[in-house]
């Protein structure tokens, strides 16, 4: 077996390198989702490294053949589910001291993403080492690049900008009610606050493109995520003793349009629109009632016939 080691070394190395590179790239493109603690980066890179080793050694294990060794992949899955828990717990405990909160839905989405990324890393490592085994270094290189691009594509997901139009809106007061265009947001009792909001507040309106988008915006967690992203990018004037400045997103119950109000540090409408558009559509909020049409029709007919 010792004479085989150099050959497998190349196979395993190819997989490990490709997998780790995938992890680094996925860590970079999602800066908005990541708080950016150096220790967190290190932890995730190392876990990505382990995932790619697991993916890479699967091929030599099958070639040897040592099928028992391939079953440790199941163990790996267990391990990565743990990552989701760790990530969720970290974010949840930080949430308590956050002025503008992410919301549980967003946290769940982030945690799930972190878990899924490790599977992608493992997959990349696996196919790369397979290519290295079957087609040599050149094939491994080509497959690795393809796999990296593919995982980037898979992880990019939908954004709010692709399901609804985001337009600037006007802030006004109807008595004490803060209005974003025709949508009532909240009741502001202090006159000084009303004046300040009128002068320094910003608002946009989200107009859903279809019924699916409307039902996604209907989700409180999704709206929370939008408000959170906006206040991360533009900053928020909110403080513990100024709850009036909490960014809020409320919907028009008749049209499903959503008005977002924020007290930004950086008063830049273009930035705000970009931030809202870039907010990821949460997996838990995503729904497609329009696609259910055909089965609902069938159910209706069944009801009629009975």
């Amino acid at each position: 077996m010792s004479n085989l080691i150099p050959e497998y070394l190349l196979v395993i190395l190819a997989g490990v390198v490709a997998g780790t590179v995938t992890r680094v790239i996925l860590l970079r493109i999602d800066y908005r989702q990541y708080p950016g603690y150096p220790h967190g980066y290190l932890g995730h890179l190392f876990l990505g490294f382990i995932a790619s080793i697991l993916g890479a050694v699967a091929i030599p294990a099958i070639m040897e053949p040592d099928f028992a060794a391939a079953t440790f992949l199941a163990l790996a899955a267990q391990q990565f589910r743990e990552i989701r828990n760790i990530e969720r717990r970290t974010l949840e405990s930080l949430e308590r001291s956050e002025l503008v909160r992410r919301g549980l839905d967003y946290i769940e989405g982030i945690a799930r993403t972190f878990e899924a990324r490790n599977y992608l890393v493992m997959g990349t490592a696996f196919v790369t080492s397979l290519a290295a085994q079957l087609g040599g270094p050149a094939a491994a290189f080509a497959v690795a690049i393809l796999a990296v691009l593919l995982s980037r594509y898979f992880m990019s997901g939908q954004v709010v900008g692709s399901i609804c139009a985001v337009v600037p809106a006007r802030i006004s007061f109807k008595g004490a009610i803060l209005m974003v265009d025709e949508i009532g947001i909240m009741n502001v009792g202090l006159k000084v606050m009303r004046d300040k909001i009128l002068q320094e507040g910003l608002a946009v309106k989200l107009i859903p493109r279809d019924g699916n988008a409307r039902s996604t915006l209907h989700d409180i967690g999704q709206r929370n995520a939008i408000a959170f992203t906006a206040s991360v990018i533009l900053g928020s004037k909110k403080d513990v003793d100024i709850p009036e400045f909490t960014p809020l997103a409320r919907k028009n119950p008749d049209t499903g349009e959503v008005g977002l109000y924020i007290m930004p540090v950086e008063r830049d409408m273009e930035q705000l629109i970009a931030a809202v558009k870039l907010t990821p559509v949460l997996e838990s909020a995503r729904s497609k009632p329009l696609k259910a049409g055909s089965s609902i029709k069938a159910a209706k007919e069944q009801v009629k016939s009975t």
Partner: peptide
């Protein structure tokens, strides 16, 4: 308005106007 403003800061609470002469 002044009292409500102070109380808002002290209690970290929102001030809402019921528009009948009362702020809560």
């Amino acid at each position: 308005q002044k009292v409500a403003g102070y109380l808002s800061k002290i209690l970290d609470a929102n001030v809402h106007d019921l528009e009948n002469g009362s702020l809560i």
